[in-house]
Amino acid sequence: MKSKRNIQHFFVHLVLLIGVGITAFPFIWMVLTSFKTAGEAMQIPPTIFPKQFLLDAYVQIVSALPFARVYLNTIISTLVTTVVQVAFCSMAAYGFARIEFPFKNAIFILLLSVLMVPGQIFLIPQYLIIQKIGLLDTIPALFIPNLFSAFGTFLLRQFFMSLPKELEEAALLDGCNRYQIFGKIMLPLVKPGIVSLVIFTAKFAWNDFMWPLIVNTSPKMMTLGPALSTLQGQYTTKYPMQMAGAVMAVIPIIVLFFIFQKQFIEGVAQSGIKG
């Protein structure tokens, strides 16, 4: 009986490991290629491991594009988007979850309707707004529309609604005003929700592609995604350079993921439970 179970487990692990191999291979290949010379990468048949682990491709990419600048743009855009969006969303979420005021539900439903519409619908007018206020090809263009999120508001509202009402009533009777209650009592209690939203937003902002591609077209103002596309066009056969760019583009989020993997995975796992 026990040996039968062991054999079963062996096969389960075998299948899962094959899956892990397929999942991990592109990452491994990306890293290995990035340490080769262009000549070695194109050699037929190719080497699996680089003959020597060279940093040439990384040096080349930093000097070829305004890569440092692009990196900085992506960091700034991601930070601003995340901090401001989470701040705005938590405020609005508290307001919608806990305070009564006229037209509350009507406003909330109007905002939620944004979630039902695919993003392409907004792109042309958003672009024209940014153009009209003269911000095309600037850093603010990268993040302005992303500062406001219906999804984040909805997500955090759920967290505020799950808190007991008594907490707030007690504080109100003690003479605290709404702003104090929000900052000192409620906000610390929805920390898990805030962490989820921070992770989600940071990942989205870092990986975003179409919007930065549209608004910022000069190489100095790009973010990583569109810059990689330019790189691919300019250095068609410099595969180690392309892979070095890819490595540098995915590393920050992968590091973030390994630090917060529990929160990353739980945030996603919960998304299906209510659905």
């Binding site: 592609f209 890819a246 583009a249 995915v250």
Partner: peptide
Amino acid sequence: VTMAAAVSMVWKW
């Protein structure tokens, strides 16, 4: 969690 633009380049390779 990884950037689609970056991993697409890897797959293309």
